[in-house]
């Protein structure tokens, strides 16, 4: 009896790890192949049967991308846009999220409900007039045109509010009785308390901005201002035969966000579960 039970458990265990290996391979294979092909010599990735590993690993495509094709510039553009958006979004959404959770003012709940309804509207609906607005502000083809519309985020405000609801009112009132103004309360009590959700918000905003494609594609017309995804989509048009070169470009684009995620994944994961289950 117990022997057959043990045997069944072992079969179950084997099946579990086999399924895990299969799922894991499927999910990593495209990324591993991308890295591998980026080190292959020109033409090596377009052979049959496909080469899985480079014969003589080479850095020539990376040198090409950073030298001749100025990908370093696009990487800097992407970094600039993502860092500025993240910093601005943190300040703007954290203060709004806190206020919607903890400060009493007339019209607060109605405003919040109206805003929540806005979550159902797809961003593409706003894009055409938004482009005209950006154009009339003279921000077409500028970093500002990419950054400003992404600063305030209804989702970000939601996230912070959810977290800030748990701050005890007594804590805030005690500081007020000691004579602290609202700004002071926010800076020295609220911000330190909600630090984990700020990390989540920062990570989300950074990754979303870094990965964004459609809006930068619309706003940026001069290729010196392109972000990495826009530059990469342009490159694949001209160099679609240079598989290895394109894979190196994909690695440069994906690597920063992947590393950032692996370092800070705890915050990312909390963001998903906080934001959607509750």
């Amino acid at each position: 009896m117990s022997a057959s039970r043990a045997a069944r458990d072992r079969v179950g265990q084997t099946a579990l790890y086999a399924a895990l290996a299969l799922f894991g391979t499927l999910s990593l294979l495209p990324l591993l192949w991308m890295v591998s092909a980026s080190f292959m010599a020109q033409g090596e990735a377009t052979t049959f049967p496909p080469a899985l590993l480079p014969h003589h690993p080479t850095l020539v495509h990376y040198r090409d991308l950073f030298g001749r094709l100025a990908l370093g510039r696009y990487a800097m553009n992407s970094a600039l846009v993502a860092v500025v958006t993240t910093a601005g979004a943190l300040a703007i959404n954290a203060s709004a999220g806190y206020a919607f959770a903890k400060l009493r003012f007339r019209g607060r709940d109605a405003t919040f409900r109206a805003m929540a309804a806005g979550l159902a509207i797809p961003v593409q609906v706003a894009m055409l007039p938004l482009f005209l607005l950006i154009k009339s502000l003279g921000l077409v083809n500028s970093y500002g045109g990419v950054i400003i519309p992404g600063l305030a985020s209804i989702f970000g405000i939601f996230l912070v509010r959810q977290y800030a609801l748990a701050i005890p009112d007594d804590l805030l009132d005690a500081a007020r009785i000691d004579g602290a103004g609202e700004l002071r309360v926010f800076r020295s009590i609220v911000l330190p308390t909600i630090r984990p959700v700020l990390a989540t918000l920062a990570l989300w905003t950074f990754l979303a901005t870094w990965n964004d494609f459609m809006w930068p594609l619309i706003v940026l017309s001069d290729d010196r201002r392109y972000t990495l995804p826009v530059a990469l989509a342009g490159l694949v048009g001209e160099h679609s035969q240079d598989v290895e070169l394109m894979m190196a470009g994909a690695v440069i684009t994906v690597l920063p966000v992947l590393v950032l995620f692996l370092m800070l994944q705890r915050y990312y994961v909390e963001g998903v579960t906080e934001g959607s289950v509750k």
């Binding site: 495209p30 990965n211 995804p229 826009v230 394109m246 994906v254």
Partner: peptide
């Protein structure tokens, strides 16, 4: 983390990877 990795990647980049796959 392994299962979640594809989600954080840049769509443009992985679309190009899959184009070759």
């Amino acid at each position: 983390a392994v299962f979640f990795a594809p989600f954080v990647t840049t769509l443009v980049a992985v679309a190009i990877v899959w184009k070759y796959l």
